[in-house]
Simulated assay, not measured.
Amino acid sequence: MKVLVYSAKDFEIDYLKKANGNRHKLRFVPEALDATTAVMAAGYDAVSIFSNDDASLVVLEILRELGVKYLALRSTGYNNVSIKSAKRIGLKVAYAPEYSPHGIAEHTVGLLLALNRKLVQANAQVNQYNFLIDDLVGFDLYGKTVGIFGTGKIGSILVKVFHAFGCRVLANDLMRNHYLESHYDVEYLPLKEMCKQSDIISINVPLTHETHHIFNAELLGLLKKNAFLINTARGAIVKTKDLLKVLRNGQIQGYAADVYEFERGIYFKDLSQNGIKDELLIELLAMPNVLLTPHQAFATHEALERIANTTIDNIDCWEEGRSCKNELGYETFVS
């Protein structure tokens, strides 16, 4: 099968080549999929895309007209794909589920620890031979209340980690995990009540119509003044303009994230020469109580290997006419 791999990153190409084993004809291009670059897929049976590619209805229709039959995602999230439209026009879509729950959970804890104990600031100080600690005071995690928004694969791991730290763990999810309740003393609460009681909140839900901008001015206004908000899910779950307002006013203590609401066209690129024009991101980066990383939480050797193997296996299934367990349909999209 001929496959065009959009948004191909140097760090993932070798993993994909190894998983492929020369079975399929892969072409790697750095360009992201959108309405302009979709024409590059002419003559290909399938395309593979990443989380920041645009697979909206217009783009999917172009691909289908060019003869593309399959869309293989190299990500768990698929909010960038119009699944209903793909099914309607006969384009099959598969994703790569659960490739890095431990890696993302570990990165979440790393962001919290770095923000709380001011590790970035401390490193900058000692590199300037400044060994004072007056501005480096943090707090113990032990005894604090942590709210986990979403107790799926990643959230469940975080429950266990924070329980091990000696934290009181609260949670909110559409479905309660009775194992976590019985073994890790998790208390499920309505989201607003969880936010009111938590010293730390971790966002671990997918981006859907219901979760888009759910952390807006109203919900952010319920957080404690000393609270930390950590987001390793999707940027648009938090309304950036409202977040900046509460940060400016000192209504929360800090924010750490591996994602950003408007990251498309910015993340996964080196813009160090020309800079950026996104005023919201510029303001976030300038704040001393904000820590951002460039959507790297998933990037471990183990995860990249799993993503590559799953992506190629999905393509194998289609070529061989086998059922693909990771194929997405409209029912999956709305569930």
Rank of each mutant, 00 (worst) to 15 (best):
L132T: 13
S202M: 13
S156H: 12
E305D: 12
E261Q: 12
A105S: 12
K92P: 00
R248Q: 15
H212L: 14
V47F: 02
L244M: 08
R248T: 15
Y6S: 03
K225Y: 06
M175V: 09
A8H: 13
S48R: 01
N22G: 01
Q251L: 15
Y255H: 08
I276W: 10
L4S: 03
R306M: 03
L91M: 11
A41K: 08
G321R: 13
C317W: 07
R74T: 02
A94T: 08
D134Q: 13
E263W: 00
A96K: 12
I148R: 10
P101Y: 10
G77H: 10
K192A: 13
G250M: 11
H212V: 00
V81E: 04
N289G: 08
S48M: 07
L73H: 02
V186G: 03
L174D: 01
G250Q: 11
N22M: 10
G221A: 04
E320S: 11
Y99C: 10
V186N: 05
K277G: 07
K25Y: 11
V39Y: 15
D258I: 01
G43R: 13
L4P: 04
A38V: 03
A42Y: 09
K269Y: 09
R176D: 06
A171Y: 02
G265E: 06
N177Q: 05
R88N: 13
V29K: 14
K153F: 02
A41E: 11
L112D: 03
T151E: 05
L174H: 04
N177S: 04
T293P: 06
G21I: 15
G235D: 00
L57Q: 13
Y330A: 09
D185Y: 14
D316Y: 10
K269C: 00
I276H: 08
Y70W: 15
V68Q: 09
V161A: 12
Y70S: 04
G254S: 05
L111P: 05
K160T: 05
E319V: 13
K118V: 01
L222R: 14
K277F: 02
I203F: 00
L223K: 09
E279H: 07
E193D: 12
F165N: 10
R88P: 00
